[in-house]
Amino acid sequence: MMVLHIARRELGAYLVSPFMWVVSAAFLFINGFFFAAIVGGFSQYSSEAAMYGQEVSIASDVVAPFVGTVGLLLVLFAPLMTMRSLAEEQSTGSLALLLSSPVSSWEIVLGKFVGLLCFWTGLFGIGMAYVPLLLAWFSDTALVPIAVAGAALVLLAAACSAVGIAASSMSGSQMAAAGLAWCALLFLWIAGFLSEFQGWLGNIGDTFGMLAHFDELTKGLVQSNDVLFFALIIFFSLLVAQQRVETHRWR
């Protein structure tokens, strides 16, 4: 219950923040731009492909590359959305309200997390609803893979939010929080490049490469190890944040 109260306040704070509106608008605009470019490219390419008898599909040639692009943009934009979360509470002193209330550190952190999750779900659900609508209207593609890709995006957003909250719990500086979240997320994103190598470097790449895990999901292949990867990132990030909040009682 306390989690929901905190999440509700959090969401309310996002909705009255001009900064969040501007960042959201930029995020949606760039996504829209890429969507138009990918669809435009596809319509040209598909007519040529038909002449040579090649197989093309909306799912693999529009949805998958588009969702991949959104994923990368998400990684770049998420730190801007999450940097306030706990850093602002620490710098303005409002954290004292939460710490002196009958609320546990877990409830504080989960409240922040659920609030961000609602924000992302709303942003995708409203701001990017045009994607399934247009594809359903103008093509006969199946909607299930699109829904799975959408769910994958929400899962990625959840992981980015958790990492962002952990970064934001470190200090009262929002700049530091954004920078730290960027470093962590970009590492996770490009760690996949290491899988080109042999041996332990390659293993790191296979394990931590968020891109590979995300790609599998966007193809509509729901595998337990990919879901587990994101679940673990979320759990450990929130654990770090919870520990940081708890240290306010001890230091």
């Binding site: 306390m2 109260h5 905190i6 306040r9 309310g12 704070a13 009255v16 923040s17 303005t92 002193g93 409002s94 954290l95 004292a96 309200l97 939460l98 002196s100 209330s101 009958p102 609320v103």
Partner: peptide, 28 residues
Amino acid sequence: IGYLPEAPPVYRQMTVRAYLDFAARIRG
């Protein structure tokens, strides 16, 4: 317990009423 720290622990972007409502909620 009700606690007023040295700096009032307010969320500046909330109205007075919404803030007090939130404070009441998290105090159960």
